[in-house]
Amino acid sequence: MTQNNKYELLAKIWSEFSENKIAVVALVCFSIILFVAVFASVISPTDPYDLATVTIMNSRLPPLEEDFSGNVYWLGTDGAGRDMLSAIFYGLRISLSVGVLSGIFALIVGAFFGISAAYFGGRYETLIMRIVDIQLSFPSILVALIILAAFGKGVEKTIFALVLVQWAYYARTARASALVESRKEYVDAARCLSLGNLRIMLNHILPNCIPPLIVVGTLQTAHAISLEATLSFLGLGLPQTEPSLGLLIGNGFEYVHTGDYWISIFPGIALLITIVSINLVGDQLRDMFNPRLKR
């Protein structure tokens, strides 16, 4: 594929994507969130975890309130006197990293098992798909709950639980498209050249399975972010040293009955916007790649 062709392809994808205005808005929203998450330490008004600047004197200030030295807290402060806006920026970074990382790992594991199942077939395929079926018969929250209740909380354990929850979806999708692809002539041709199995799967079949995997990937990442927030809120997910949005909401939950609404509302709104914008983008991608909806 020449360079020129690539640009044409990208332009075509974009023109199809931008037909849905809501999806475009969602994409812009998500880009802003991504920017905030990446540059959290630069754009945050304060460093919420710097013990030198955070004082308990400023605890539970309502939004737009000033402290004694004249700093304005746009979204108020939490129980320890941390600026909520900065805490949300840092929280977004943690929530997104955990969600995206687990999504990537699950994609690798799922695509590997899905494609190899379709490629080799036979008993191996039956076994893999049986495991996928069994796993999908359990609700995702239950699978994550079992892992984290049994093994304890922590960053790696949370990511492991999220990968375990998601890989089956990727495996199922990858197998479905790999089944179609591996019957095509170019795979036969590659076999005739006596290329290795791994090379055929990686270089020939995988690239043609990417579009459906991207769709599943966006929707699953949104799901993973939501699940991580839920688990961290329950006290099973991330430790207090990694304050994701879920943990921020959990900390705010303590103050619900005293009416300090801002400590749990604002991180929740940030979480909601993140999930909704990823879901809307994913929905549009799914419609684009769905051949049945092609005009």
Binding site: S226, T230, G246, I249, V256, L272, V276, N279
Partner: peptide, 13 residues
């Protein structure tokens, strides 16, 4: 898309 636990907190509030 709404996380169940957060909606619960909003309902309580």
């Amino acid at each position: 898309s709404m996380p169940t636990f957060w909606v619960g907190i909003m309902l309580i509030m």
